[in-house]
């Protein structure tokens, strides 16, 4: 118990004093996971919309795969991305292993199925008559897709939060492809594991608290966007 109190005290102390190392770790966590989430939106929302609105052979199989991908284990992603990015591996010439870019790639792989799967579910939960009505009103295909996505924005935003939550709290992939290098690829989760193994439990608790606070801020912001207009 004393450790937790000490952890809280250290967390406050570190943030108030503007500890450079801590802030660099926080920025990196936010930047890597934020960019990964953004990329996953660019990929996941169109993909989810396409899956929800088109019928084609094998569609159910694809949706099943996407849904399975929502639980993609980060260590598995980390392992495969590591092997691909090894400098003597297939993508080695880009020299990406142990860089924030590598972490963004891995986290994007983790978040994209989450966003895609929840987009599919969100769009399929729309009243099918809406689509007919929009078509009857003369909407073009792009207009139709755009309006349907707009209509499903609340559950899609929930998907964004789920995706961001998955990657900012993820550790296996970040540790493997990033390497937990001080000042380069050390993020809040990997720093927490390292400090725990160093026995700096209070600092580890402080880092966890900062992570929770960060998630609260980001999700609070997204929730604000989501819930702004109305109580039903």
């Amino acid at each position: 118990m004393d450790l937790i109190i000490e952890g809280v005290r250290q967390a406050v102390g570190l943030m108030v004093s503007g500890d450079a190392e801590l802030w660099s770790v926080i920025w990196l966590s936010l930047r890597v996971s934020g960019l990964a989430t953004l990329l996953s939106l660019c990929l996941g929302i169109p993909a989810g919309a396409a899956l929800a609105l088109n019928s084609f052979w094998g569609r159910r199989v694809v949706i099943g795969l996407v849904n399975t991908g929502m639980g993609l284990p980060p260590v598995v992603v980390g392992l495969f991305v590591t092997i691909l990015l090894w400098r003597n591996g297939p993508l080695g010439l880009f020299r990406l292993l142990y860089t924030p870019t590598a972490m963004i790639i891995a986290q994007c792989v983790i978040a994209t199925p989450v966003v895609t799967g929840l987009t599919v579910a969100a769009m399929q939960s729309l009243n099918p008559r809406l689509r007919l009505q929009l078509l009857a009103l003369g909407a073009t295909r792009p207009q139709l897709v755009w309006l349907l996505i707009r209509e499903a924005r609340l559950p899609i935003l929930a998907g964004v939060m789920a995706g961001f939550g998955a990657v900012i709290s993820e550790i296996g992939a970040s540790m493997m492809v990033g390497g937990n290098i001080l000042g380069q690829t050390r993020v809040l989760t990997t720093a927490t594991v390292m400090e725990t193994s160093k026995g700096n439990f209070a600092l580890a608790i402080a880092l966890s608290l900062v992570l929770l606070l960060l998630m609260l801020l980001v999700n609070g912001l997204l929730t604000w966007v989501q819930q702004r207009q109305r109580p039903l």
Partner: peptide, 27 residues
């Protein structure tokens, strides 16, 4: 929805500031 995207981009821009790393500028 684009508002939320804009917010997200702002958020990212905010943290894309000066980095300490040699490799970070790429990202």
């Amino acid at each position: 929805r684009h508002l939320s995207l804009v917010l997200l981009i702002l958020l990212l821009a905010a943290c894309g500031g000066p980095t300490q790393t040699a490799s970070a500028p790429k990202a």
